[in-house]
Amino acid sequence: MIRVLLADDQALVRAGLRVVAGSAPDIQIVGEAADGAAAVDLARSLRAEVVLMDIRMPGTDGLEATRQIAADPELSGVRVIILTTFEQDEYVFEALRAGASGFLVKDTEPEDLVSAIRVVARGDALLSPSVTRTLISSIAGRGPAQPVDASVLSVLTDREREVLARVAAGMSNDEIAATLYMSPLTAKTHVNRMMAKLGARDRAQLVVIAYETGLVRPGLS
């Protein structure tokens, strides 16, 4: 069972999501939070694995809550999916940078919502790769507000950089393994080691870093 927490300030949205996401046999809605602070608390106390997080909430908003969850070592296993009204929401990029694993628009089809929760809980692929890449490249392509020094990548081996470029292209571990002639387990090891070295908690942060350091450029690949 995947333990899912719902965080949205609209009770009716939570009720709807509970019905939609809770319909899957392998997903259990363990709690609901009406604001970011409650989401952080409940993620801890209910041992949630995935949080469906609205961005705009009163008090602690979804961005801040994502940041707090990402900063808490105790919550390192918690994955955050940002729920947004529109895909090109300017806060989504901030949320990805803050540590969210991906984002979904609120009108996602039920089966897509369920499979997104599964993908994020497994952690071996990027959630909605094409949309994520388009978003990140369009925003990172504008030139980062604070340029990220490419030297942060110097901690990576050449092989890891090859893997990183493919993660940024939206490939899953299996796909990376196939293109680089390595075993899926090796690909996974590379990805995990990179996340540890770069302080990323999820593939989404690896994609952000890849774009912001210029390893991958918008419009290529």
Binding site: D9, A34, G59
Partner: peptide
């Protein structure tokens, strides 16, 4: 919701 109290909600 309690968090309404600190008034950072957009409304």
């Amino acid at each position: 919701p309690a968090a309404f109290s600190d008034g950072t909600g957009a409304g």
